[in-house]
Nucleic acid binder design. Structure first.
Lengths: 218, 218
DNA sequence: AAATATTTTTAGATATATCTAAATTTGATA
DNA sequence: TATCAAATTTAGATATATCTAAAAATATTT
């Protein structure tokens, strides 16, 4: 059973969405996430359902099956290994890798991924702090807490970010919030839940939207 | 103007065929080369013609335009850089790279190719001895002669092979005919034009079909 | 040159992936 | 609970890339 590029993209997106939620994933959520139309999603869901990678009840949303999870994690493994390669070996900035990795993740060659993993020294996390699943789809999440959940006085190390968009990552670069940076919460503004934090001995204000997307050690 | 994967594959094939011939490339030659049907080729040729990368007269074959040449050489550049990467950095054998490079050549990212070229040290030739075009599509052929054209007594160094199939390359590995190997023609069998050659101080017989696909220094 | 064979093109299908617009179902609200 | 709004699905198109079978053009042979 092989999945087309489009099928792999849908499956990966559905998998990611299903991890943010508890229950089934809605058609519209998938459509939004993929910038496509609900009608297209319904069509695709039917195909994925026939292939056994999702289970689906009309009007009731989609769930990823065990086989689907494995397939999704394999694509995610490839995506994150390629991102790591681009940053470690080709000197890409972390905000430049996503689009290219979206293409590279669909290349089919078990040997290529095996050797790439070897070349990179079997990394466990990608440049954004996300875990890289192993060949069996196993991975370990780091114990982490979103900055938005931290009270003044809390300090830690930036270990992951939740948004891979170039704009967001460029902003993080600017304020010095790279993976591994030391951070301390100085103050919280009750009015809008923005935070004053210290990064690299410099104090900056970040909005709630930003603090929700930065994870630090617990 | 962007070409789809399929369009890139057709264009590349037509370009390669046009270099073996003097005149226009026939529909059937393209179909054979791509293991597809003549009818499919006709359809695609029309599309490529509209896009201006080939010129085409019904029943009269196809020619690659200047714009087409540039586009084809760009794909070939990517293919050969990836092959070089696979062998040099990921320890692939030269008979394992073709299929993967066929996929990788379609990845769209100028920065990726720029950095890959840099990582590899700006190579001029790929693992099969084929020249890697630069960004402008320029490349240099080595002065070379097919073994099949050599008379007994002629010696030289294997600098390229003409067939990238895994079976052929595995056979070359077996007899020691890697790029850079010293070779000397010992004898020619008039009956079938097979050759006795010396490679690595070992004498082997090779068929005409094989000798036509091995190129040595002039 | 006429007949025959080969090559190429056209016509009409199929499969994938997408869309818009209309119909249907679900869920929230009055 | 009946009504309405939102979400979802269906129906019917479009675009790409492919195919088979038939028709047309070209090339070869007698």
């Amino acid at each position: 059973m092989t999945l087309s590029f489009a099928e792999e993209n849908y499956l990966k997106t559905i998998y990611h969405l299903s991890r943010e939620l508890d229950g089934p994933v809605s058609t519209n959520a998938i459509a939004d996430s993929l910038s496509t139309k609900a009608a297209s999603v319904t069509d695709m869901i039917k195909k994925l359902s026939v292939k056994g990678v999702v289970s689906y009840q009309k009007y009731r949303g989609v769930r990823v099956s065990d086989a689907g999870k494995k397939a999704a994690l394999h694509v995610i493994r490839k995506h994150r290994l390629w991102e790591t390669f681009l940053v470690e070996k080709l000197k890409f900035n972390w905000d430049e890798v996503h689009e290219v990795a979206e293409q590279l993740e669909h290349i089919r060659s078990p040997l290529l991924i095996k050797r790439l993993d070897e070349l990179l020294g079997y990394p466990k996390y990608d440049p954004h702090g996300d875990p890289i699943p192993d060949e069996d789809g196993e991975f370990k999440l780091k114990a982490k807490i979103a900055l938005s959940e931290c009270h003044p006085g809390k300090d830690g190390i930036v270990i992951a970010v939740n948004d891979d968009s170039s704009a967001f990552l460029k902003y993080l670069d600017k304020i010095g919030a790279y993976i591994g940076a030391k951070v301390k919460v100085i103050d919280r503004v009750e009015f809008d839940d923005s935070l004053e934090i210290e990064l690299d001995h410099k104090k900056v204000f970040i909005s709630k939207e930003v603090s929700e997307n930065i994870w630090i050690t617990e």
